[in-house]
Design a binder for these strands. Structure first.
Lengths: 340, 340
DNA sequence: GTGAAAGCGCTAACAA
DNA sequence: TTGTTAGCGCTTTCAC
């Protein structure tokens, strides 16, 4: 049993316990430089026996290298972001880099705070959601002198690199699909979030394309807070009540779309005969629904993977520090709530 | 526009730019000690103008204090854990502490790795899910010399403090409820995860209580991977096909429960008349379902809040470093899938 | 293959 | 109120 020392152990403790100089102990513990098998063994034994945990703070300060990647996202409650994180983690697992997550709750001030906080740990790179940042945040990112990858969106001016989809195009594509299918009286439901720029861009792309075809949104409804599934249900009820001649509902996310779908089916409304439905995101959840909701894949895992690859490559010095723009292609899943 | 310096700025830069000693600059930037308003102003101006971001690595090393709390959870995809995180974040927001999340994927080896990694940053405390850890992990936690709070579960021997519910009791309570309602032919569906000890304990509490009433699980089914909603649907279909005389289905989580519910309703089966249903977790999602699924609240936010409070109090030296055990009481939400 | 010395950028403790 | 000195625990560099 290891001795119950309260003060955290230092290299020196291992050095003394093994009779090897601190420097050599350090080398063994980092697998750096040539060390004879004998001393290596002595050191490893001692370290293990004592339960030594190296102090990264000191290591980072001395080496001027911190193998952390700051990942800044708006929320963890959305499922969309955990999926991006999965892609990032998977990719970084093959490197010495480690992701550290910060959450902004879609608030620019909080983004600023979180960013400042993370940069003060001198990470090797930053992956941050969105292209819209406050003056201060942009300045910090630019000054940081480390690779920065803005993700999820490509509609705008990246600071450095950028991996995502065009949400304007996503909105446009869905609108085209709906127009092609012959729907005319279209209702929209979304979140009451002026700061969710991606949702806003999708909406813009959507309405503009409809407008070009001479169609205007016939009704719309926004929500905030609460269970998205329940909100989708409620909003749908309200909307088809208020505007009974709607023949299509476009939801800004899958969860409210699922709520709407469940409600319509319960009411015995023919989907997609009487009313067509589409949403956005392509979350796994949808697989279990009674009918497959038309949606659009936002390439979340791919975004995470690509972003992490960019950081890793830059960190390894493989890529000249140049901005790279990766514009992924969101694909429509027609499902069976969109008549053909 | 700030000058485009590539080397990160140091205190010294601010000191030179403001004509104030490094030490006083440090004081201003940390709001520590008395500094005249004049110098304070000078320093703040200079820091802002240069875009100085303090180096926490150096600060932490010098002060021997790191205001980080390591939070170690099995997964981010489960919604349960983001909710715990929310409670933790909220609570720590009022302090100088910051949560840092690590994910284990329910793998003990990964837990060990993540723990080692996090401890090497010398955090001020650890919040870790579960009471079951490898020898090495337990040793690290014990040796760390910082407050450790094990969360989600109280059925076992905590290393230090512990906040959670008794999953055995949760299983027992649900079994009692079902027995009281007069159900006799009970099917169980859960995850194929020998390492999810909490699910295991719930199952044990459940079956034992049934056994005491002379009831045995009539059928069971386990899944892994994929969309939980879809799996719930599939498993339910398979099970009521295989064992048509079942009058109750108990699901180990709400998502598969929801899938089962949707399936049964679609098939036109009377719930809870012909078949009763219950699940576990009390996730918000359930609010939007056609029928309210009976479930049990696992007090997730509360657990996060309480755990963070313990760490914060210990960190502030308010509480003698003694193990505290908080046994929360999970409450049954009967919903309307359990006949009375 | 191994060790000694000199910092990394900041803060504690003390002095002025 | 302000400044000086001496590290924090490690790694870099260079000598052996």
């Amino acid at each position: 049993m290891p001795s119950p020392i309260k003060r955290p152990l230092t290299l020196r403790d291992v050095s003394e316990a093994s009779g090897v100089s601190e420097m050599t102990v350090s080398r063994v513990l980092r697998n750096k430089g040539d060390v004879s098998t004998a001393t290596r063994q002595k050191v490893q034994d001692a370290a293990k026996r004592l339960g030594y945990v190296p102090n990264k703070i000191a290591g980072a300060l001395a080496s001027q290298r911190v193998n952390l990647v700051a990942v800044i996202i708006p929320s963890l409650g959305n499922m969309v972001f955990p999926e991006v994180l999965t892609g990032i983690s998977e990719t970084l697992e093959d490197t010495e880099l480690q992701p550290v997550v910060g959450v902004t709750d879609y608030l620019p001030e909080k983004e600023e705070k979180v960013l400042f906080e993370m940069l003060s740990w001198r990470p090797s790179g930053v992956i941050i959601a969105g292209l819209e940042h406050s003056e201060a945040s942009s300045a910090m990112l630019r000054q940081a002198g480390i690779p920065v990858v803005e993700i999820m969106d490509v509609d705008g001016e990246p600071i450095d690199s950028c991996v995502g989809i065009s949400h304007r195009k996503a909105g446009r594509q869905m609108a085209e699909e709906i127009i092609d299918a012959g729907y005319k009286r279209i209702g929209f439901m979304g979140t009451k979030m002026p700061l969710d720029h991606r949702a806003r861009k999708r909406f813009e792309g959507f309405t503009r394309t409809l407008a070009k075809a001479g169609i205007e949104i016939a009704d719309q409804e926004f929500y905030s807070g609460g269970s998205a599934l329940a909100k989708g249900r409620e909003m749908t009820a309200k909307m088809i009540d208020r505007t009974p001649d709607l023949d299509f509902l476009y939801f800004s996310n899958d969860m409210i779309g699922a709520g709407g779908l469940l409600y319509l089916l319960e009411r015995g409304i023919d989907v997609p005969g009487q009313i067509g439905l589409a949403a956005f995101n392509g979350v796994e959840l949808l697989d279990g629904l009674p009918r497959k909701l038309a949606t659009m894949d936002a390439c979340r895992r791919e975004i995470g993977i690509k972003a992490a690859q960019i950081i890793a490559a830059r960190n390894a010095g493989e890529i000249p520090p140049e901005g790279e723009i990766v514009n992924l292609d969101p694909k429509i899943t027609p499902g069976d709530t969109l008549r053909r």
